[in-house]
């Protein structure tokens, strides 16, 4: 198993082998997101109390889930980068931060657009919303530290340390609605319990979550491959590739 990690840890191996995933992910995310939007926007029923505004759930919830997952992935990559000093892990941290930041902003924005008609406000400083805003600042912080001193090792390490420490925010986001009195309601969708909604609603929701993940890996992969080629541009394999 270690050999497998070592193989994929090499930028050249990773670059050459991961290329095939791009069209696969592009097709998958396009189809799944397209079908999911059609299902959620046109076929799924309205909610008995939220009316048609419930359809915002089909973009807000996947964005929120992805925001948290992508942070977890970034933190794991940061940990690997700090302990094993793997270049590819470092590149992974650098490339996922901007995507995670954008997705977190999307989650916050769609949440605001849902909150205004339903709660009566675009924003409130409750534990769930505030900790998600902190998540955005953590992504931004990792980005800022990274770019502060170019490609210096210190900048990279500081960014990775911040990423790992910021992991503490994730359980806070997740359990904020259980631990404290918040405006944001508790989870409708957990890994263990039955969803608090019928299939006509959790079907499109699940499809959109899968679609968002497919899109995420596509975006990250494109970005990571670009970063690897950039970093290794003086190496033989890149020079060879560019001559073609």
């Amino acid at each position: 198993m270690w050999r497998w990690f070592h193989q994929w840890g090499s930028p050249k191996f990773f670059y050459h082998r991961s290329g095939v995933l791009i069209p696969v992910l592009a097709l998958a995310s396009g189809l799944i997101l397209g079908a999911g939007v059609f299902w959620g926007l046109l076929i799924a029923p309205a909610d008995y109390q939220q009316g048609e505004s419930v359809r915002i759930m089909y973009v807000h919830v996947p964005a929120a889930i992805l925001a948290q997952s992508s942070y977890a992935m970034m933190a794991v990559m940061a940990l690997i980068s700090l302990i094993w000093r793997l270049k590819i892990a470092d590149a992974a941290v650098q490339t996922v931060a901007p995507i995670g930041a954008c997705i977190t902003l999307l989650a916050l924005a769609t949440g605001s657009l849902w909150g205004k008609p339903m709660w009566g406000t675009y924003w409130v400083w409750d534990a769930r919303l505030t900790s998600t805003l902190i998540l955005f600042f953590l992504f931004a912080g990792v980005l800022a530290l990274r770019n502060a001193a170019g490609q210096s090792q210190t900048a990279g390490r500081a960014a990775s340390v911040l990423a790992v420490i910021g992991l503490l925010n994730l359980p806070i986001i997740k359990y904020s609605v259980d631990w404290w009195f918040t405006l944001h309601q508790p989870a409708s969708f957990t890994l263990t319990d039955r969803p608090a909604m019928p299939f006509s609603m959790w079907g499109p929701l699940l499809m959109m979550v899968v679609g968002f993940y497919a899109w995420f890996f596509l975006a990250w992969l494109i970005r990571l491959r670009h970063e690897l080629v950039k970093r290794e541009r003086r190496s033989d394999w890149v020079q060879q590739m560019m001559k073609q």
């Binding site: 997101l33 939007v37 926007l41 309205a46 009316g51 048609e52 505004s53 359809r55 915002i56 973009v59 807000h60 964005a63 995507i99 954008c102 997705i103 902003l105 999307l106 924005a109 769609t110 657009l113 849902w114 205004k116 008609p117 968002f212 899109w215 596509l218 975006a219 494109i222």
Partner: peptide, 22 residues
């Protein structure tokens, strides 16, 4: 159902973000 601005703005932002980043 009266929520057009909010719903379509949300989906629009999503399309812009996902498509734009790619």
């Amino acid at each position: 159902g009266g929520y057009a601005t909010y719903v379509f703005a949300s989906y629009g932002l999503t399309a812009l973000t996902l498509g734009g980043l790619l």
